[in-house]
Design a binder for these strands. Sequence first.
RNA 1: GCAGUUGGCCGGGUGGCCGCGGCGCAGGGAGACCUGUGUCGAGGAAGGUCCGGGCUCCGCAGGGCAGGGUGCUGGGUAACUCCCAGGCCGGGGAACCGGUGGAAAGUGCAACAGAGAGAAGACCGCUUCGAUAUGUGGAUCCGCUUGCGGCCAGAUAUCGCAGUAAGGGUGAAACGGUGAGGUAAGAGCUCACCAGCGUCCCGGGUAACCGGGGCGGCUAGGCAAACCCCACCCGGAGCAAGACCAAGCAGGGGGCCGAGCUGCCCGCUCAAAGCCCCCGGGUAGGUCGCUAGAGGCCGUCGGUAACGCCGGCCCGAGAUGGAUGGCCACCCAACCGCCGGGUUUAUCGCCCGGCGGUGGACAGAACCCGGCCUAUAGGCUGGCUGCAGAG
RNA 2: UGCCGGGUAGAUCAAUUGGCAGAUCGUCUGGUUCUGGCCCAGAAGGUUCAAGGUUCGAGUCCUUGCCCGGCAG
Length: 112
Amino acid sequence: MTERLRRRSDFARVFERGTYLSSDQLALRYLRRSDDGPSRFGFVIPRRVGGAVVRNRLRRRLKAILEGVNHSAGYDFVWIVRDGETREPASLPGEARALLEKSGTLGEVTSR
RNA sequence: GCAGUUGGCCGGGUGGCCGCGGCGCAGGGAGACCUGUGUCGAGGAAGGUCCGGGCUCCGCAGGGCAGGGUGCUGGGUAACUCCCAGGCCGGGGAACCGGUGGAAAGUGCAACAGAGAGAAGACCGCUUCGAUAUGUGGAUCCGCUUGCGGCCAGAUAUCGCAGUAAGGGUGAAACGGUGAGGUAAGAGCUCACCAGCGUCCCGGGUAACCGGGGCGGCUAGGCAAACCCCACCCGGAGCAAGACCAAGCAGGGGGCCGAGCUGCCCGCUCAAAGCCCCCGGGUAGGUCGCUAGAGGCCGUCGGUAACGCCGGCCCGAGAUGGAUGGCCACCCAACCGCCGGGUUUAUCGCCCGGCGGUGGACAGAACCCGGCCUAUAGGCUGGCUGCAGAG
RNA sequence: UGCCGGGUAGAUCAAUUGGCAGAUCGUCUGGUUCUGGCCCAGAAGGUUCAAGGUUCGAGUCCUUGCCCGGCAG
């Protein structure tokens, strides 16, 4: 997983037409593209969650979690950290996997 | 050693695997790009955005007014509200810390309380004089009823007219202190000394200021982070500045001899089918700016120091929905528990060793620097002051 | 990233030469009513975002921090 979402228009498209899923601390929007290139990712972490260090750390943890996942090609994902009061970093991997299962965008050859 | 005070520095390390951003090299490919490899990759505050500069644009960045900023003195610097040194005042036993233009240029402010709040003021008190009342005394004077009145002296109380700022009381603040003279009582009313003020002279210092002497008057309070005065400084915006390329859209209204981006005036410049203003519409892509700099370290010399000159060496982030991460092992500081030993009569504490556990704060570059301020687990180290004398 | 504006009762807002922090709505208590509302009477409710400083005295002036909101190429 290397490709990032880099343009404002990419984010706008996913937010307008993407499917929305959420759990306690996370939310996910994703959209099937017309091509079969590598899937791309973007992260949205509101300022309210914390300072720059906290927000950077959350984004990196999410990236690390997604390293080990085999995604289907041709999707654009936007991961959103929800502005909750209680924050439990340890449960992030489980939540992320649950959302991906629900979306049905995992690769045919199931992870590993 | 303990307590205090003040300055400087560090702010986890090593290795392995998988990844991320920039740049370079090699190979492949027509090209987009792919593969491999090398190298660099967050901070002391990168933070808050409180000051100051560089840089860019506003035609030039000129003058005056308005407006804003700074404020003991001298120096450092590109500049500063910063830094260094010094002066004065206050606090502390000391090291040391904190404050710092002008209130006799003018205008103004001080609720409540209090008599009075600015060169003010008689509420209580104190005192002279006058009136009335009530006791007391009377050698001498007058009347007689021979101990009473007038009269006189003095006392007390009340009232009135004045005097008085020493005392009481109010307040954050009440117009010097002590002593003597003086007075009806008092008072810088007068005098001596002290404190404080103004002014002149001499000496020291670049200066703030300090020391000494003469003269004057006898008090001239607080607040300028109130207006203000004085001295000095400041044009405006900000890298989302600004320049170029590509893509895309739709024009309409108004003003014109004015227009020129904080406000006004002057000067200056540019203009006559060009510029400005308003409404509406389109874009949200790329390249440059963009990282080597008032940079660090060491040394000589100048300087009390901040710092400067010269010489040598060293380092090298440039992202743009925004790159530093994940997993693992070992080590290190610290903390907690247990065990053993030493010190002690013993407990506690301290020191040494072993095992197990916990476990590294505040915080992330966004044009670049110099400061300030704020956040920060813990550690290393220098100076100075005081105390105790070996827990 | 840069530049502006604002924090006062539960809510919306006032407070000028710096001098006892108020108004409206809401809340509570009592009255009126068979009961509730309306109405009448009364009451409670504030570290003025926080910490320092100037002043005799600070919501107001100065410094620092925190939070909220807005603007832009």
